[in-house]
């Protein structure tokens, strides 16, 4: 129920104990969680601590469920919100393989929709890759318990194609201060260009 590490070809990768969902490699019985396939894995490899073990997690921008599936291998409960029909369909397939992965087909900009379904969480993880990323995180702050950890993936180019990525990260971090104490920003290179994760606490 925790995120482990495996050595492959001289590199260390995160890995979890759970049923395989895609074409990921299985090493020593663990699902390899590749940092080029998942921004959360990239963050872990870059030394970011995401306390998933036994955590209740609100995951915004669940996509096709790849990263949520790894989260669900370690966490107590994962609520994955996704609003685009196609990825949501795959997310529901993946949720079918994970007892504690709850799919929520809804818009993360309207958290009131799922207020009666999502419980107070220890971790908020967000990867929505759209305009107004910071606003989404702020609007969902009421779900986060005091002291809860917050990870917001920022895609610099979602906001503005011309601006410097660092400026964008700072802008998002500033706006997040409305609801959180921002700790630091970690960029996800070389795994993802123009992406960073802003780490904060409620």
């Amino acid at each position: 129920m925790t995120v482990g590490w495996v050595d492959v070809d001289g590199e260390r990768y995160p890995a979890t104990d759970g049923e395989k969902v895609r074409d990921e490699r299985v090493v020593d019985g663990l699902r390899l969680w590749h940092p080029r396939r998942s921004k959360a894995s990239a963050a872990l490899v870059k030394g970011v601590d995401i306390p998933l073990e036994d955590a209740r997690v609100l995951y915004l921008g669940g996509g096709a469920g790849t990263t949520p599936s790894y989260f669900a291998d370690a966490a107590r409960a994962v609520y994955a919100v996704e609003f685009a029909p196609s990825p949501a369909s795959r997310l529901v397939d993946v949720a079918g393989t994970r007892d504690r992965l709850f799919p929520v087909f809804a818009d993360a900009r309207k958290p009131s929709v799922y207020a009666g379904i999502v419980e107070g969480v220890d971790v908020l993880y967000q990867d929505v890759a759209t305009r107004g990323q910071a606003d989404v995180a702020v609007k969902n702050a009421p779900f986060v318990r005091d002291g809860g950890r917050v990870y917001v993936v920022v895609k610099a180019r979602s906001e503005d194609v011309t601006a410097e990525p660092e400026e964008k990260y700072e802008e998002v971090a500033d706006r997040m201060e409305d609801a959180y104490d921002v700790d630091r920003t970690v960029d996800l290179s070389p795994f993802y260009d123009d992406h960073a994760v802003v780490i904060a606490r409620r």
Partner: peptide, 26 residues
């Protein structure tokens, strides 16, 4: 959702109605 029932219809109804986000221990 569970005050409306314990099945998929309860969840769907709750999504349609909505409410105030908070950190309750549901």
């Amino acid at each position: 959702w569970y005050e409306r029932g314990t099945d998929a219809d309860a969840v769907t109804e709750e999504l349609d109605e909505g409410g105030e986000p908070d950190a309750r221990d549901l």
